[in-house]
Amino acid sequence: MAARIFIDGAAGTTGLEIHQRLSGREDVELHRLPDELRKDGDARRDALNTCDIAILCLPDDAAREAVGMIDSDSTRVIDASSAHRVADGWTYGFPEIYGRNAIRKARFVSNPGCYPTGFLALVAPLVREGLLPADWPYSVHAVSGYSGGGNALIDRFETEGDLAWRGYGYAMGHKHLAEMQIHAGLAHPPLFAPAVVDAMRGMVVEVPLSLRAMPRAATAPELRNALAAHYRNSSIISVSTGKMPQELLLQRGAAPWDGMELFVFADMETDQVRLVARLDNLGKGASGAAVQSLNLMLGREETSGLELSA
């Protein structure tokens, strides 16, 4: 019997891409409200309480409202907003960090943010293994495709023809910081420097390290080997262990991709290291991660419906 899936917020970028990954599958039955009922409270309440799994692709306040509408004990939830990423009673939907069984058994799953996905993939396993200190003041530099900013930012980049780069978060206090700190097990929130570039999709997240200045830090080869060991059984996350590339690129016309590549660039003479993650902000950073969690919650193959050809 097909599982009944309701995507609340299916008209947004994340919802549309989730729908694309699920359409055509015989093991799920997609339920979408017609446009005239998308904001109808009664219609949404009925859909939320009659589905097997609801995927919330909504602003934070609307996501909290949707959860409050659920009376059925059998409805499970994947929330793609940032409303519940550090909330009690919610399982963080990063199976490579928290384990696949945790997602399989969960009723409420919070989808990781796109920037935290890259940061946590790099840092969380190394801190957990004691190879990097938990009390270090880490920095995160990242660029993302403009689709991560929703329809307003998409329109801005596509209508302002000369807009090439947008830096933001200069007031500090970005909403991703708590998520990064808590799920990496850090004593302090990292210093986060995000930016948006003139590409629809794609993301590079970088954590620079000066190992010589850090107490209790492993060597660059030890960091690389530890990451490779941690993700050795993953079909989604890969660690580059061969010859390092001289450059990393984001392509304006990139196709959807649900994988992620990790790199450990190092200068052995200075002990300087750049931990780098490359991913699709709409893939493993959003829609692909939601589908991955959905697959686990339904007891399906983890990679079903994912786009993994780089």
Rank of each mutant, 00 (worst) to 15 (best):
M1L: 12
A2P: 12
G9Y: 03
G9W: 02
A10K: 09
T13V: 13
T14D: 08
G15H: 00
I18D: 00
I18T: 05
I18M: 05
L22Q: 08
S23Y: 09
R25Y: 04
D27F: 07
D35N: 13
L37A: 14
G41E: 15
A43Y: 01
R45Y: 07
A47I: 04
N49A: 03
C51A: 09
D52L: 07
I53D: 02
A54D: 04
L56E: 03
L56R: 03
C57W: 00
M69V: 10
D73Q: 12
R76P: 03
I78H: 00
D79N: 04
A80H: 03
V86A: 01
F94V: 02
Y98S: 09
Y98H: 13
G99R: 06
N101T: 15
R104I: 11
P112T: 01
P112L: 00
C114F: 09
G118N: 03
F119R: 00
V123W: 05
R128G: 00
V140N: 03
V143R: 11
S144A: 11
N151K: 10
A152R: 11
L153H: 08
E158Q: 09
D162L: 12
A164F: 15
G167H: 09
G169R: 02
G169L: 00
G173L: 10
A187V: 10
V205T: 04
E206W: 10
S210G: 14
R212M: 13
A213I: 11
M214T: 04
M214P: 05
T219F: 07
N225Q: 13
A229T: 13
H230P: 00
Y231W: 04
I236H: 02
T241S: 11
P245F: 06
Q251P: 11
Q251A: 15
M260W: 02
E261K: 14
L262C: 03
F263Y: 14
V264W: 04
T270D: 01
V291G: 01
R300V: 11
E302H: 09
T303N: 05
E307W: 15
E307V: 10
